[in-house]
Nucleic acid binder design. Structure first.
Lengths: 128, 128
DNA sequence: GATCATAGCTTACAGTTGTAAGCGGAGGCG
DNA sequence: CGCCTCCGCTTACAACTGTAAGCTATGATC
């Protein structure tokens, strides 16, 4: 398994674009990110290369352009990241993590109810 | 504010020791980590230096030993990290994060109830 | 007082990341 | 057919990270 827990911020920017678009040419990725990152196209190209070297993304050729696509799903990365954070920074203390999540973010209306539902579900499926 | 969101794994190992001990000499830090990391003492020393350069830890002298102490609390780092993960990887979708947290970890007995209590509390304090 | 162990300070060196320029080839325009 | 532009490929270079050895000073020991 690749080390999904330690993906750099810029790599993640790119993955986010690919996850959103499904597939995207280097140009599209660049255009999507440029307003945010201010990167030159070459820079985005380098990042795409490196991600491909790490086998986190792949590409097919369309004429002389490359069309990139992620090899990992957002869900895999999310899960690996949460697992890492929970283990290394929270010592597995799930409620503490949830607590910071609640206080650190804009809680959307309905989020709390949805979380409650998740807990119910877990409780039925689990052993608690 | 320091960039607490991007602390490397080894840095975090050290911070974890300091948070647990309150204060610790370089030797104590090393002895606490050596079984896990297998690092040489010099390596731990270097890491302590670098952390201090980043102003994440500081030290006082006790004879010829340095006694280190964290300058950031675990809570600050936890909060910054959760905020970062939630924003960059989860697009602010709090329930998704909680969902992975629930499925990624050993859920201790009582955790679910505690989380429910947190939600209740948040709901009273918040606007949802 | 001379020696030895140990503490921290300085230096090392390869790998990764941030950030990008330069080069060579393919397609389009005149 | 030749030139310009745009593409990806290769190279660059500084900062940071992983991992540690070497140097120097100081406290302990004989």
């Amino acid at each position: 398994m690749k080390d999904l827990g330690r993906i750099s911020e810029h790599q993640l920017d790119i993955l986010n674009v690919l996850w959103e678009y499904g597939e995207a040419t280097a140009r599209e990725v660049h255009e999507a990110l440029e307003p945010v990152t201010g990167h030159a196209r070459k820079t985005t190209g380098t990042l795409l290369h490196r991600l491909e070297k790490q086998r986190l993304i792949t590409h097919r050729e369309d004429g002389r352009e490359f069309v990139y696509r992620a090899c990992v799903t957002r869900e895999e990365v999310q899960e690996a990241t949460v697992r890492g954070v929970l283990g290394q920074l929270f010592q597995g203390e799930l409620p503490a993590l949830v607590n910071y999540a609640l206080s650190s973010s804009e809680v959307e209306p309905g989020d709390l109810a949805r979380i409650r539902a998740l807990i119910d579900e877990h409780q039925r499926g689990g052993s608690d």
